[in-house]
Amino acid sequence: MKIMTHIVAGYPSMKECEKIALTMAETDVSYIEIQFPFSDPIADGETIKAANDAAILNGTTTAKCFDLVERLKGDVPLLAMTYYNIAFRYGLERFCKKAHEVGLYGLIIPDIPLDEEKYEHYLELCEKYGLNPIQIVSPITPDRRLREIAKVARGFVYCVSNSGTTGERENLNFNLKKYIGRIRKFIDLPLALGFGISNKKQVGIATEFADIVVIGSKIISIHKDGGISAVKAFCLDIRS
């Protein structure tokens, strides 16, 4: 079972998030997603939005996020998750070049759809600098878009869910089977699944269908309540 965990760079502090990430790496997670904070994170819920705000207030800059990645570089592949304005303001080419230099495996930028490629050349630059531009799909992504996404996807594909996919176990099973089944018809890469997964039971369900299980905001609340040792215990427990 592969797990991808998440931290917000600079939250609760640069030092502490570095420790959290190192602890995750020790528990053998498969990927770590490092979010470069942004003031207007439209695809994130309240917990991560608050962590973004706090990190910016702490003085976290894009340059410091790259420094963090450089320090964390090790056996576990690291991905930078951020919003397009952060990369755009840094200079997209400069951003991709730097991402390559610090050893990032890929980028997750939800608000740069394929449709803007001819204006932004994001996929082209990822290719040039050997980065995996992680594509995101949802239950309402139509087949025709999945075909286009399949052509440009690299690394793995991130499947998010909307409100329709959470709920009773039987329902969840049924919906996930249908959802992931449809995505697999178009996409040959490993699939990562994230839907606010917060406990062992949900990890179990997700594992039946997906290759990688994403654990995001739960880590933030666990750390808040129990510190690093609780994060370690959680990462070990969900995979046991």
């Binding site: 397009y84 608000d111 759809p113 449709d115 799909v137």
Partner: peptide, 8 residues
Amino acid sequence: YVPELLMP
């Protein structure tokens, strides 16, 4: 410039 979820 929206997440894939909003494109359709």
